[in-house]
């Protein structure tokens, strides 16, 4: 399978184990890679998410696609810069990416071009702070600022 993938995809391809292939591609070829993989029987989008690599000032987009026929899961990754992050939608390839893309906007602030609901609230109604899954969002600070600590009157012996 790896050989077949290597034929159609330009990028770093690593066979981590018989059932896991890691594919790293440039961000402009992300959707074309997924399209090619779909043609190679990777028909199910299992998960589409992002990781905030705050030290590199980059987001890593991760799409997990699965081939029922070959029982292989491909982890497709690409990096995009953190300033004004934007990607093209992949709903035309995998329709169930729709809400995952909305989540990317809400949790990371990544705008998805071509997704009408992108950057609209999904889980967090009325959220005005930084996108919460970014590493620079400090949830403990947020909690101490927004909620009162419970004051317990301790009873000693």
């Amino acid at each position: 399978m790896v050989e077949e993938i290597k034929k159609v995809i330009k990028g770093e391809i690593l066979e981590k184990s018989p059932q896991r292939i890691i594919i790293k591609v440039k961000n402009d070829s992300f959707s074309s890679t997924l399209n090619a993989l779909k043609g190679l029987s990777f028909k199910r989008l299992t998960l589409f998410t992002a990781v905030d690599f705050v030290k590199d000032n980059q987001f890593e987009l991760v799409a997990l696609v699965y081939s029922n026929e070959n029982k292989i899961l491909a982890i497709v990754k690409t990096r995009i810069p953190k300033e004004n992050p934007e990607i093209e939608t992949i709903t035309n390839i995998y329709p169930n990416a729709f809400k995952y893309e909305v989540e990317l906007g809400e949790m990371f602030g990544i705008k998805v071009i071509g997704n009408p609901d992108s950057m609209k609230p999904f889980l967090l109604e009325g959220w005005e702070d930084l996108p919460p899954l970014r590493k620079d969002f400090d949830s403990i600070k947020y909690a101490t600022e927004h909620y009162e600590a419970r004051n317990v009157e301790v009873k000693y012996d």
Binding site: V152, E153, V154, K155, Y156, D157
Partner: peptide, 8 residues
Amino acid sequence: DGDAFVWF
């Protein structure tokens, strides 16, 4: 008493 739920 909510505070009674804190003890040694």
